[in-house]
Amino acid sequence: MARLLSALGVGALFGLGLVLSGMTDTLRVQGWLDVFGSWDPTLAFVLGGAILPMAIAWRVAARRPAAALGTPYPGPTGSHLDRGLVIGSLLFGAGWALAGLCPGPAMASLSFGGTGGLVFLLAMAAGMMLAPAVRARLNGPMGRRKSKMDIRRLSDGYAVSPQIAPSDMAALKAAGFARVVCNRPDAENPAELQSAAMKAAAAAAGLDYVYNPVTPGQMNEGNVAEQAKALAGQGPTFAYCASGNRSSQVWALARAGQDSADALIAAGARFGYNLEPLRDRLR
């Protein structure tokens, strides 16, 4: 509840700041981007004003183990410049100029933005829903065989799939993952899919590789701790086992206490992983 009230207050302050600063005035935003015409410098003040307290907040965060409500701070984002970041930012900038709205102000001005504002918001939502398909195409090996991997994103920073092959590592790297966790014991696999071969392929693709074997029905605290350690690392984590089931279970247990049991179980259910039997341990 504290978490929701805090989020509500944050949203309110964010919205009022956007309105006061002039960010919901599309002419002002377009004026800011009109560098070669008649330039409106207001947004430099807005950005400066916003970055200042946030820079202090990052410094405070660096000296504490976790946020006030117990969530670990988001890890560093790294310096990996993928195709999505470059192309996405260029597309966003063009749209920002055409309408003078970006996502925050589009939501903040919903109540007084009229039909145009509503149409913009709906089109923006549609664009957001198109993104996963476009991203998959951008990151896919262009013109080469499509990977047969079925990446199932359980959360922003974690995805699972059934058994993968060494040749899938490049696609995982391109999809933005920082590390691959194997939750399938080597005893279940032929030599070419065992951890030694997978680790070499991961290293060649520039991915970290963690071998955290989970024996069916015998998942232990060590497995959970190892998965949690991988999740705490910088960048998104990809994990696999035979079906993705063990990788989902060990993830849910590692997230227990941070996300609600209902949310974790729902995330698994979306891809057919039944986490319901773990409910008591997810509280």
């Binding site: 996405g88 597309l91 749209g95 970006c102 918001l121 709906l122 923006m124 549609a126 198109l130 476009v134």
Partner: peptide, 14 residues
């Protein structure tokens, strides 16, 4: 407005 919204939505998520 529609084109701009699509670009902003798709671009920011990519």
């Amino acid at each position: 407005v529609i084109v701009a919204g699509l670009l902003v939505g798709l671009g920011t998520r990519l």
